[in-house]
């Protein structure tokens, strides 16, 4: 499953970069994110609650920063699972400065398995898109608040 999108944030790129690298901000912005704890290296342990249609569950996982090019690009690798299934994903967020604003674009590839794949399939694409939208609109709010 491929996901992509572009958003414009009313904040300078350095500020957006800062926000993206702050675990507290990520917990606040990610829908259903309960916990994000730094672990060894450039990784975090995450606990998330997600529902796809009839399938709801808690996911335990690992978020790894695979590549970081401050302040323009970050590549994340996510791996997690729970009774509702497993997710493996990799995504790259790119920040471009434009007239004092930041244009954020992301592209990612996710592989889901287990219950969410077999039962939630018809909804999973739109749910993922919705979660991404929520995340980035929350981030936009954070960015405007801190301006």
């Amino acid at each position: 499953m491929r996901l992509e999108g572009t958003y414009t944030l009313e904040a300078p790129r350095d500020r957006v970069w800062e926000l993206l690298n702050d675990p507290h901000v990520l917990v606040r912005c990610t829908p259903g994110m309960k916990q994000l704890e730094p672990a060894e290296g450039d990784t975090f342990k995450a606990t998330m609650e997600v529902g796809v249609g009839p399938v709801k569950g808690t996911f335990q996982g690992k978020v790894e920063v695979a590549e970081r090019k401050a302040p323009e690009q970050i590549t994340l690798r996510v791996q997690g699972g729970g009774s509702a299934g497993m997710v493996r994903a990799e995504g790259t967020i790119t920040l471009r400065e434009e007239d004092g604003r930041t244009v954020l674009s992301y592209v990612g590839e996710a592989q889901v398995s287990g219950l969410i794949a077999s039962v939630g399939q018809r909804m999973i694409g739109s749910v993922a898109k919705m979660l991404a939208d929520q995340f980035f609109s929350n981030l936009i709010k954070e960015a405007s608040a801190s301006r």
């Binding site: 592989q111 889901v112 287990g114 219950l115 794949a117 077999s118 039962v119 399939q121 018809r122």
Partner: peptide
Amino acid sequence: YDDFGQLLTGSMSD
């Protein structure tokens, strides 16, 4: 099945 071997028609609603 999808290419990763997940049965996408995994319930009677699918």
